[in-house]
Write a protein that binds this DNA or RNA. Structure first.
Lengths: 143, 143
DNA sequence: CGTATGTCAGCTGTACTGACATGT
DNA sequence: CACATGTCAGTACAGCTGACATAC
């Protein structure tokens, strides 16, 4: 029932590097990490509702509503009611949001992606992809 | 210079699963994740100074001082001056801290370790170990 | 009516920077 | 003296829950 000492070390190393990565990710952007994540996703996937974005980012709708509200204050996204369903709010990038995203990409946005391209071999990328699947399984594990 | 669309997706998936894992880790414990991390580390490595713990967890000494102060208020750890260097503060588990850690292990502590033992094959564990090294390289990458 | 979507308010946890006291 | 260690105060960020309004 008890985890082995070796597994505990592995788990500890994982926990520490997760924390480091999260903090480095946070510190890299002019806007916040959550905001950058939303901008990038809208750019990749186009207009989405708040609930859709929340589901994709795996946070509560209330949390995403706040992030989207912050982005709207900065003029980077635009909200409009869904003509087909008055409850839904459609979120899309503004011209200013697209420009900001482009500009930021040349500096700091997409940092993980750039690091992956610069640092990892093809083999490494395959290992990372497999490991992401493992991490997802761990996250979903129930005692 | 620009990352490929595929790498961007990989990076996005990684970012999302990192966030999920961090949040799940946080929600699993009676005490906070940082507190649990410190208790576990003291148990594995014995008495350490605040600076030592901060370095191992890769956070600033000021942050660790706060975590340690919280644990002291709960009576789970004990602070004592280093007889050999009056600037240093040695931190060790109290009897109550050891008891709390033991008790919690049977419920929620060491959750990642338990999940790894339960969910991952020997091959998976090797992949994870390799991936942790890759994540460390990514974290240290400089543009 | 019940259900779904989004919002408002308040809270917790985490770690940061800058300024400082004290000990070597 | 300078340097190291730790602490205090203030700030930023991220996400949560509960209560609620509105639309289907």
């Amino acid at each position: 029932v008890t985890a082995t000492r070796l597994t505990q070390s592995l788990a500890g190393d994982l926990r520490v590097v997760l924390g480091q990565l999260m903090r480095r990710l946070r510190s890299m952007h002019g806007f916040s990490l959550s905001q950058a994540a939303v901008l990038g996703r809208l750019d990749r996937e186009g207009t989405m509702s708040i609930g859709d974005i929340a589901a994709a980012e795996r946070v509560r709708p209330q949390s995403m509503a706040q992030t989207v509200a912050d982005l709207e204050l900065d003029g980077l996204i635009e909200r409009s009611p869904d003509p087909a369903d008055g409850r839904r709010v459609l979120v899309s990038l503004t011209a200013s949001g697209i420009a900001t995203l482009d500009e930021d990409r040349h500096k700091r946005e997409g940092w993980i992606a750039l690091a992956i391209d610069a640092e990892l071999s093809e083999h490494d990328r395959e290992v990372l992809e497999e490991a992401i699947g493992l991490l997802q399984r761990l996250e979903r594990w129930q005692d």
